Amino acid sequence: MKYIIICLLLFTAISKGFAQTQAEMNKQANEAYKTADKQLNEVYQNILKDYSANKTFLSNLRDAQRLWMQFRDAQVKAMFPEPAKNYGSMFPVCKANYLTELTTQRVEALRVWVNGLPPGETCTGSVGARQ
């Protein structure tokens, strides 16, 4: 009997850990996107600060970031071209997950200006050209 009660308690705890409402899944996906977007803004601001003396680079970076945001939005439209209602109740999660993926990729692309390139890299361009 003790074994059955322990199994039932364990099953209840596990099932509650995995059971989520659609609203909870939407919230979780949106939070992940907000976190990725916050990381993007932090990396971008660090670059603006670190490279403040390199006006040409910063002008080009700002242009690139504006274009990336247009690209991101176009990618989402390409991925989900129909009205949201056509994708069902999972659409908010799917859209937020895709935005998170695209934003995370951009964060990694920008981190090179913060972290630098591996030693011996010859094609550094503006990476490290803080002045």
Rank of each mutant, 00 (worst) to 15 (best):
L9R: 11
K16M: 10
F18V: 11
A19P: 00
T21D: 12
A23E: 15
K27L: 15
A32F: 00
Y33G: 01
Y33T: 04
D37A: 08
K38D: 12
K38R: 10
Q39G: 09
N41S: 14
N41V: 10
E42Y: 05
V43M: 05
N46F: 01
N46E: 09
I47T: 04
D50M: 12
Y51C: 01
A53D: 06
K55Y: 11
R62E: 14
D63H: 05
W68C: 03
W68F: 07
D73V: 01
Q75G: 03
V76F: 08
K77G: 04
F80V: 06
F80C: 09
P81S: 11
E82F: 04
E82Q: 15
K85V: 05
K85G: 00
N86Q: 12
Y87I: 05
G88Y: 10
C94Q: 15
K95C: 08
A96M: 07
Y98I: 06
T100N: 06
T103Y: 00
T104Q: 12
Q105I: 05
E108S: 08
E108D: 13
E108C: 01
A109D: 03
L110S: 03
V112G: 02
V112K: 03
V114A: 06
N115M: 05
G116K: 09
P119V: 11
P119Y: 04
G120R: 08
G120L: 05
E121Y: 11
C123D: 11
C123H: 12
T124W: 11
G125S: 06
G125P: 04
G125H: 11
S126L: 13
S126K: 14
